[in-house]
């Protein structure tokens, strides 16, 4: 990896609180190649979302920076599309219109009207939502909403796709469906993906590398696990695969032995972050 596509360089993040500043991240370093699928995993409150928000440009790192193709990221933009945990579709627009908003914004001049229409429909087809194009989010199930959220992000043709626990709010079956869809799409498009997850199976199944984060405060990258499993991956075949299970237990060991959550740390931290919104520490 001589020239990383996306580089997190010595990122630190401090949030001001009433009792002084709270150091959420300290010296986070990571190099990501083009087309790589990275999972960020760690306990709640370890700053995974903060990392993602810095890459998205929604937060400014206190120290260090995120570099995309050697250029510093300092504002949000469609080349780093975000799939939010709770879909965040605009409830007054249909699935089509939600994607359209993104397409109109990103391809204002580069696409004709019919090209835009085809592109919107293509992206909705990619996430298997052709049947409900003209429904509003209120009429869609949780999984379908998240599909549209992914279609909206993909339609921006991002260089990096950032996913903040995209399947966290879904039931297990729907989640499995969407994971399969995501693998399919990624195989097809070859996007660079950073995904936050709490789910060990999800991390091993989808990722090329799993970045395990230490507990906060001053969280940083603990270990990085290379997942060397051949693609396309099938969850059924892998269920009994010894290598797969070894990866799985390695992540589990990191989370539950090395980074076991200590109760008093949690409480102390909770006390310092109560003034902040939940998203800051998620």
């Amino acid at each position: 990896m001589s020239k990383p596509h996306l580089e997190l360089s010595a990122i630190g993040m401090e949030f001001p609180t009433q009792t002084g500043s709270f150091c959420a991240l300290d010296n986070v370093n990571l190099k990501i190649a083009q087309g790589e699928f990275i999972s960020l995993i760690g306990h709640s409150g370890c700053g995974k979302s903060t990392v993602l928000n810095i890459v998205a440009g929604l937060y400014q790192a206190s120290t260090g920076a995120a570099l995309l193709d050697n250029r510093e990221v300092n504002e949000p933009g469609p080349e780093r599309a975000v799939v939010f945990q709770n879909h965040s579709l605009l409830p007054w627009l249909t699935a089509y219109q939600n994607v359209e908003l993104a397409v109109n914004q990103v391809f204002t001049r580069t696409m004709s009207k019919t090209e835009k229409k085809d592109w919107i429909e293509h992206n909705l087809a990619l996430v298997h939502m052709t049947h409900a194009v003209h429904k509003r989010p209120g009429e869609l199930s949780g999984g379908m909403k998240q599909r549209v959220g992914i279609a909206r992000a993909l339609a921006m043709q991002p260089q990096v796709l950032l996913m903040d626990e995209p399947f966290g709010a879904l039931d297990a079956l729907t989640r499995a469906h969407l994971q399969d869809s995501l693998m399919e799409i990624q195989a097809q498009l070859g996007n660079t993906v950073i995904m936050i997850t709490h789910d060990v199976d999800e991390a091993v199944l989808l990722s090329d590398r799993i970045v395990m984060m230490t507990n906060g405060p001053a969280a940083t990258v603990g270990e990085i696990l290379n997942v060397d499993l051949e693609r396309p991956r099938s969850r059924l075949a892998l269920a009994d695969d010894p290598i797969y299970n070894r990866y799985r237990s390695e992540v589990l060991r990191f989370l539950y032995e090395k980074q076991k959550k200590v109760a008093d740390i949690t409480e102390a931290k909770l006390a310092t972050v109560t003034t902040k919104s939940k998203r800051d520490v998620a």
């Binding site: 998205a56 929604l58 949000p76 469609p78 780093r80 965040s88 919104s277």
Partner: peptide, 11 residues
């Protein structure tokens, strides 16, 4: 805030 973030990402 998520909707505002969408707006920011879309610039």
């Amino acid at each position: 805030p998520d909707l505002l973030n969408v707006s920011k990402v879309l610039r």
